[in-house]
Simulated assay, not measured.
Amino acid sequence: MGRQAEVIRALAMRARAAKLKSDGAALGDESLKEEGRRRESAARSVLADARAARHAGGH
C-alpha cells in the first residue's frame, strides 16, 4: 500500500474510533467508549508510523 493510502486509512480509522466514542458517550455505554479509545490509539500508532515512513523516504 502506498504511503499516502496508509495515512488516509489511518485517518479513517481514527474517525471511526471517534464515532464509537461519541456513540458510547451518548448511550452511556462504557464498552463502546473503551473500544473507541482502543481503536483511536491503534489508529494514532498507524498514522505516526506512516508519517515517519513518509519523512524517512525523503518526501
Rank of each mutant, 00 (worst) to 15 (best):
A5L: 05
D23C: 03
A52K: 13
A25Y: 10
A25R: 15
G58A: 07
S22N: 10
Q4T: 04
M1Q: 04
G57Y: 03
A42V: 09
E34H: 10
A26Q: 08
E34V: 12
A5Y: 07
D29P: 04
A5G: 03
K19W: 05
G28Q: 05
V7Q: 11
R38W: 06
E34W: 01
I8A: 11
K19M: 12
G58I: 07
E30L: 13
E30I: 12
D23W: 08
K33Q: 14
R51Q: 08
M13F: 06
R44Y: 02
K19C: 07
A17E: 04
K33P: 00
K19S: 12
M13P: 00
A18L: 13
R39Q: 15
L47S: 01
R14V: 02
L32P: 05
E35S: 15
A5E: 10
R16T: 12
G57W: 06
R44D: 13
M1K: 05
V46L: 12
D49T: 06
R3S: 07
L47T: 01
R44A: 10
A10C: 02
R14M: 10
G28M: 11
A10N: 02
A53I: 09
G24N: 08
R37A: 13
G2K: 08
S41V: 10
S31T: 14
E6R: 08
A42E: 15
A18H: 08
E40D: 09
A26R: 11
K21D: 00
A26F: 06
K33S: 12
G24I: 11
H55E: 10
L27K: 15
S45E: 11
H59W: 13
I8C: 02
V7P: 01
A17D: 04
D49Y: 04
V46R: 07
Q4W: 06
R54D: 05
K21T: 11
G57P: 02
R38A: 15
R9G: 00
A10L: 03
S45Y: 02
D23L: 15
R16Y: 11
E34I: 14
L11F: 02
A10M: 02
A25G: 09
A53V: 10
R39E: 14
A15H: 09
R16Q: 15
A42G: 01
R38L: 14
Q4Y: 05
V46W: 03
G24C: 10
R54P: 00
K33M: 14
A5F: 03
R14P: 00
G2S: 14
Q4F: 07
G28C: 09
R51K: 14
D23Q: 15
R3P: 01
H59Q: 13
D49Q: 06
A10G: 02
R9A: 15
A12C: 00
E40H: 10
E6L: 05
K21G: 08
G2N: 15
E30Q: 15
R9E: 10
H55C: 02
L47V: 00
E40R: 05
L20N: 12
A50T: 01
